[in-house]
Design a protein around this nucleic acid. Structure first.
Lengths: 241, 241
DNA sequence: ACGCCCCGATTTGTATACATTTCGGTGTAT
DNA sequence: ATACACCGAAATGTATACAAATCGGGGCGT
């Protein structure tokens, strides 16, 4: 009610709860008690229930056996699998887009975005801005999805991406600069261009393979970051292992 | 409350609502009014809301903009896409199973099941029992999923299969016998065996390709059934087009 | 020691009254 | 004719009292 956003109590409660979950307070398996949460969030049980329902739809909570909700547990391999699954679904989205043929204006928009991404990490000599890169990268992946003619595939992909650690920009390096990091950006960007090219050329299979391989970069970054225990990535907070 | 099952009012309400939706009463886009439903289902608004939440989790309802719920609309191409997506996810499940190596006892169980399926449609001279086949086919696809080591992939696959028209046995022929129908069963069963064999032999790519192609049979059956306007398939009821 | 039943505290489920928001129609002014 | 503001009906949002189910522990019998 203080700083959280949303027009109704239920939405605010959902927002607050979501924050607490992804920050790692309330680790996987934690049971959520309506009365306790209602007090903490300063609302009645009704909007709390509503909020928990919404988070269950998002996949952050599970319904417990005897009623009520439990924070969903994610292990390290769930994290790997979610990234893999995102790759598979993005691949399918691109393949279907390629097979059906993509609209020219959307492909053009992607072209401009690709140039902006180039600029963001200093491909043309400008100083790199990694926060900007992360945002543009996320935009790119959103645009890619919209190429896909299938509502069903799009919505399932959005669903998987809503998991905080499966989002395309989850493990992009943002702070320290290193040679390996810049190289991974160059590779990722080459894949971006190839993916758009493949869709434009109706090379469905190529587009699909590229998207899968592209997701592997997230996995690599994750593994690099996992070693960096000094500065744990916030997206890793809800991994219980 | 009369004949529907479930221990709580909310579960019964969810069951009743689900039935009404998949039967095609309340076509896609229909808005659900809490008070009206509460009267029809003889419960208060609270369990109705709870029921609608659950159906939204299943993907049968969507939250409307100004609050409330709307029956999700499915078009003919959504149906095609859902089957395609099931093929993609089953393919991924099998590929991961093949890459990780599947437990022998599970493969054995699949072997026995395959023989039962043979018997069900009269491969050994016995009279075909298509109801039985549909059930065993469904069991087979459930067992297949369980080979997959990834919880995430399994749960997303289960989610897609929960759509009534994306389930593996949705469009299996059950009533009239025809040469084409028996042939499709033979082909499907050959694919079943090949899928298990591929997983056992750790041929991930082959397993994936087979699962995708296998899903195409459902699509073929669907197209055959779509022509049969005299006896529309119940799974088609919630397609609005 | 083990299982079982019973009980009470805790927690969720339900109904309902009331608050708030939303939506559609109607009127007026431009 | 269009845009806008207003209003009232109808819908959802919220709080809360009460009902029912669940979980855990203690006692008892075997």
């Amino acid at each position: 009610m203080t700083e959280s956003r949303g027009s109704t109590h239920a939405k605010r409660a959902a927002y607050d709860l979501r924050q607490r979950i992804v920050k790692g307070e309330m680790p996987g398996g934690t049971r959520l008690y309506e009365v306790a949460l209602a007090e903490e969030l300063q609302v009645s049980r009704t909007p709390v229930r509503e909020a928990m329902s919404r988070l269950a739809e998002e996949g952050l909570l599970e319904r417990a056996k005897g009623g009520g909700f439990v924070v969903r547990s994610f292990t390290h391999s769930d994290l790997i699998d979610a990234i893999e699954l995102r790759g598979v679904l993005e691949g399918t989205a691109l393949r279907l887009a390629a097979e059906a043929g993509a609209a020219d204006d959307k492909l053009e928009a992607l072209g401009t975005l690709l140039c902006e991404i180039d600029a963001s990490f200093g491909a043309d000599g400008a100083p790199p801005n990694l926060e900007l890169y992360a945002g543009l990268n996320s935009d790119f992946h959103d645009l890619i999805v919209r190429l896909c003619p299938s509502t069903i595939v799009r919505s399932e992909l959005e669903r998987v991406k809503s998991l905080p650690f499966a989002s395309p920009s989850a493990f992009v390096f943002r702070n320290r600069e290193s040679k390996a990091m810049m190289e991974s950006l160059v590779i990722a960007q080459a894949q971006h261009r190839a993916m758009v090219e493949a869709v434009a050329g109706r090379e469905g299979s190529r587009a699909e393979a590229l998207a899968r391989e592209h997701a592997r970069i997230a996995r690599q970054n994750l593994e690099k970051k996992a070693l960096d225990t000094a500065e744990p990535d916030p997206a890793l907070a809800l991994i219980v292992d």
